[in-house]
Design a protein around this nucleic acid. Structure first.
Length: 560
RNA sequence: CGGAGUGUAGCGCAGCUUGGUAGCGUAUCUGGUUUGGGACCAGGUGGUCGAAGGUUCAAAUCCUUUCACUCCGACCA
């Protein structure tokens, strides 16, 4: 295509509200345009990229035998009432009434609709397993949309759902999907990691998130420096440890005037924070509890939530009412239930509060203290990997995919049964598999850019090649060569953009680099004289002179 | 929803304290000179100053209300 025939509104400056690099570059390169908070239009270049991503996803989903369907964005409330999510799902579910007053919602996901379909049409166990996918617009009324299309309210998702007679069959498809996702993200040219994810209230350990590694990622993920272990930081499960030390010290109370934080106490007593113990007081439905953690560890609220249900940290007044001294709370002679983190319960000769103002204990030990043990903390850099191999490294990630074994949560409530071998109805077992298509694009940019703009991976670039003719509108020789090369490339099936604008070289270079087109060919009068073409890859500063006659085969070789 | 901030031309901003007929850069249009890294000269287009109400002879500027957007927290592909 030719630049003059396309709307590519590039900008020198990014709008003030674009905070992260992918958002800025997507606006500056003219891929998207903001309509309202969390709502974006995709302009021609953006759509080309979207289509490329979708094509790769479709190919890989088709390859594992998933069937493409397309379900409505608008969904009737009855379906959601049937699954129970009409009440469970919060305000993120956009609800509205039609002219007759019937209730509807904009689909944030499609478990209800697909399960309804399966219940209608899948009758026999002989039809199983079966899986479906769609590439479709979702709406989630996010509390705070941000980062451009990274967290928008309306976005495009590939969602897939599978139905099975039993867990074994689900596991097989799950593994297939896992592989398909790896293929997809490989082909998208992304540096990503599948990590263990929270399986939540549904149980089982089969849920993986796919994270693209990027400093701007909203999630912290960690993996072992020796094994394949990888998990979301908040989901790293620790098990009970064996003590590696024995109590030797004699307990002693010391004056720690006004030293109320672990940091202050550790500094004051000249010990590491990991040798200190901190005690938190939380308020649960069943009253107050004390939680003890190593000084350098943080409470994992999800784990605590799973153990204690709804809870919050006790207020200063509540602590006072328990007769405790905030800043000096310890483990000895507590009146309330004490739960100790696994890595705190194996500490020896540690420092902790003395339950007296301005007093801490040194050389404290667990003898004579009654407590329960649990996994309460977040992983930190350097922790031993839960699989026992290597140490954990923590990085930031952008969640672009999530695969999940649903079990019978929806199939049961929505009666997606099949007649089994025995002739009796059997509730199907389900899996679901999502990829944030629009988020993938933002993530790809977060991972591939420089000070000039985007450096798209070949597989998703809006064009493979840009031809930049210098003085296209002045030099008939340059125009002839550029048109010739453009025709050759087009015929050969290369996605080529000819910059036929009446612009100076600098502007054309800057735009093509901002847009991240992987390959560039430059033609000028000099080339008309010497019979060469200049080639440059977006990700390599070197320019290569190629004979004009060999230009096509050269570029074909580069594109591969 | 809690906390912080911003709304003036497509984009980036000044003007507001101390009211007096709307300004800069960039983009865009016309003409000319340039032509391998966002050029230069001249002329032009484009704004109910987020909206509503109020004070005033006079409001972008002061007051009240309201809306939108952005940032920090809980949620998620």
């Amino acid at each position: 295509m030719k630049t003059t025939q396309l709307l590519i509104p590039t900008q020198k400056e990014a709008p003030n509200d674009a905070q992260i690099i992918s958002h800025q570059l997507m606006i500056r390169a003219g891929l998207i345009s903001k309509l309202a908070s969390g709502l974006y239009s995709y302009l021609p270049m953006g759509v080309r990229i979207l289509k490329k991503v979708e094509a790769i996803i479709r190919e890989e989903m088709d390859r594992v035998g998933s069937q493409e369907v397309l379900m409505p964005v608008t969904q009737p409330a009855e379906l959601w009432q049937e699954s129970g999510r009409w009440d469970e799902y919060g305000p993120e579910l956009l609800r509205f009434n039609d002219r007759h007053g019937r209730e509807f919602c904009m689909g944030p996901t499609h478990e209800e609709v697909i399960t309804n379909l399966a219940a209608q049409y899948i009758r026999s166990y002989k039809q199983l397993p079966m899986s479906f996918y769609q590439v479709q617009t979702k709406f989630r009324d996010e509390i705070r949309p941000r980062f451009g299309v990274m967290r928008s309210r309306e976005f495009i998702m590939k969602d897939a759902y599978s139905f099975h007679l039993d867990q074994d069959s689900l596991q097989q498809t799950y593994d297939l999907m896992h592989q398909a996702y790896c293929n997809i993200f490989d082909r998208l040219g992304l540096d990503y990691r599948p990590v263990l994810a929270d399986s939540g209230s549904i149980g089982g350990d089969a849920s993986h998130e796919f994270h693209v590694l990027a400093d701007s990622g909203e999630d912290a993920i960690c993996f072992s420096d020796e094994s394949d272990y990888a998990a979301n930081v908040e989901k790293v499960a620790f098990s009970k440890q064996k003590a590696t030390c024995t109590a030797q010290a004699v307990e002693e109370s010391v004056l720690t005037k006004k030293k109320t934080s672990i940091e202050q106490v550790a500094d004051f007593l000249n010990v590491n924070q990991s040798e200190c113990l901190k005690t938190l007081i939380i308020k649960t439905d069943k009253g107050f509890k004390a939680l003890a953690l190593r000084g350098d560890h943080e409470l994992n609220e999800i784990k605590a939530h799973n153990l204690f249900g709804e809870f919050e940290l006790a207020t200063d007044d509540e602590i006072k009412s328990l007769g405790l001294k905030k800043g000096f709370i310890g483990i000895k002679e507590l009146d309330i239930e004490l739960v100790v983190d696994y890595s705190a319960s194996v500490m020896c000769d540690f420092v902790c509060g003395a339950n007296e103002w301005d007093q801490h204990l040194i050389g404290a030990n667990w003898q004579g203290v009654e407590f329960d043990e649990a996994d309460l903390r977040n992983a930190v850099e350097g922790d031993t990997s839960p699989d026992g191999m290597g140490k954990l490294v923590i990085k930031r990630g952008i969640e672009v995919g999530h695969i999940f074994q649903l079990g019978d949560k929806y199939s049961k409530s929505m009666k997606a049964n099949v007649i089994g071998e025995s002739g009796k109805a059997v509730v199907t077992t389900m899996g679901c598999y999502g990829i944030g298509v629009t988020r993938v694009i933002a993530a790809a940019i977060e991972q591939n850019y420089d000070d000039r703009g985007i450096i798209f991976p070949q597989s998703i670039a809006p064009f493979q090649l840009v031809i930049v003719p210098i003085n296209y509108n002045k030099s008939t020789r340059v125009k002839a060569l550029a048109d010739d090369l453009y025709q050759q490339c087009s015929k050969a099936g290369i996605e080529v953009l000819l910059d036929d604008r009446k612009e100076r070289a600098g502007i054309m270079f800057a735009d093509s680099e901002l847009l991240g087109i992987p390959h560039r060919m430059v033609l000028s009068d000099t080339h008309a004289d010497n019979g060469n073409v200049e080639y440059k890859a977006r990700n390599n500063p070197d320019k290569i002179e190629v004979r004009f006659e060999e230009a096509l085969s050269f570029i074909q070789g580069r594109i591969g």
